[in-house]
C-alpha cells in the first residue's frame, strides 16, 4: 500500500514512462470522455454521411468535422508531451469555437440542422458535455503546461 499512497497526492509526478503527463489522474477522465465522444460523433457522422447526406450537407459535414476534432483531441491528450499538448490545445480550441458557432447556428437556422449533430443547441442532446469538455480540456492543458514549464526551469525538481 505504501507505494500506492505516494501516487495519491496531486498533482501527479511527471511520467515515468507508463503513460503521458496529460493522460494521468484527472487527465485520464478527460481522455475517457474524449474517446467516448470521438466514437459517438464518428459513428453518427458516418451514418449521416453514408445514408442521408443530401438532407443537410452542412450539418453532416460539421458532424464529421466534430468527430475529427474529438479524435485529434483524444490522441493529443493521450500522447501528452510538448507536441501532444499543443495538438490537444488546438483541437480543444477548435472544438470550443465549433460548439459555440454550431450551437448558435442551430438555434438561429433550424432548417439547416434538421437532424441534431453533436454540437447542435450547444450540445443539448448530449447533456451539454460538448460545451463543458473543451473548457475542462483547456484548463487541464494549461495546468499541465505550467507544471512542465516549472520542471524545465528547475530540472532538480
Amino acid at each position: 500500500m505504501a507505494e500506492h499512497a505516494e501516487h495519491l497526492s496531486d498533482p501527479a509526478p511527471e511520467p515515468t514512462g507508463a503513460s503521458a503527463d496529460t493522460a494521468r489522474g484527472p487527465g485520464r477522465v478527460l481522455v475517457a470522455l474524449y474517446a467516448v465522444f470521438a466514437l459517438a460523433a464518428g459513428a453518427r457522422a458516418a451514418v449521416q454521411l453514408a445514408v442521408q447526406f443530401d438532407e443537410a450537407p452542412l450539418a453532416y459535414l460539421l458532424s464529421a468535422l466534430a468527430a475529427v476534432v474529438y479524435v485529434v483531441a483524444t490522441v493529443g491528450l493521450a500522447r501528452g508531451g510538448r507536441g501532444g499538448r499543443r495538438t490537444a490545445i488546438l483541437a480543444c480550441s477548435v472544438e470550443l469555437v465549433g460548439v459555440l458557432v454550431v450551437g448558435t447556428l442551430s438555434l438561429v437556422d433550424r432548417a439547416a440542422f434538421p437532424d441534431s449533430t453533436v454540437w447542435s443547441g450547444y450540445g443539448q442532446g448530449y447533456g451539454f458535455i460538448p460545451l463543458v469538455l473543451p473548457v475542462l480540456g483547456l484548463m487541464w492543458l494549461r495546468h499541465r503546461s505550467g507544471v512542465a514549464a516549472e520542471q524545465a526551469a528547475d530540472p532538480g525538481h
Binding site: L8, A12, V29
Partner: peptide, 24 residues
C-alpha cells in the same frame, strides 16, 4: 475497456474513469 483502463491508473481518478464508462 473501462476496467482495464481504470486499473492502469494509479491515482484516485481511476474510479471516475470507470464511472464515465458506466454512464456511457
Amino acid at each position: 475497456a473501462g476496467v482495464l483502463w481504470a486499473r492502469t491508473e494509479p491515482t484516485r481518478w481511476a474510479g471516475t474513469v470507470l464511472g464515465v464508462a458506466a454512464l456511457t
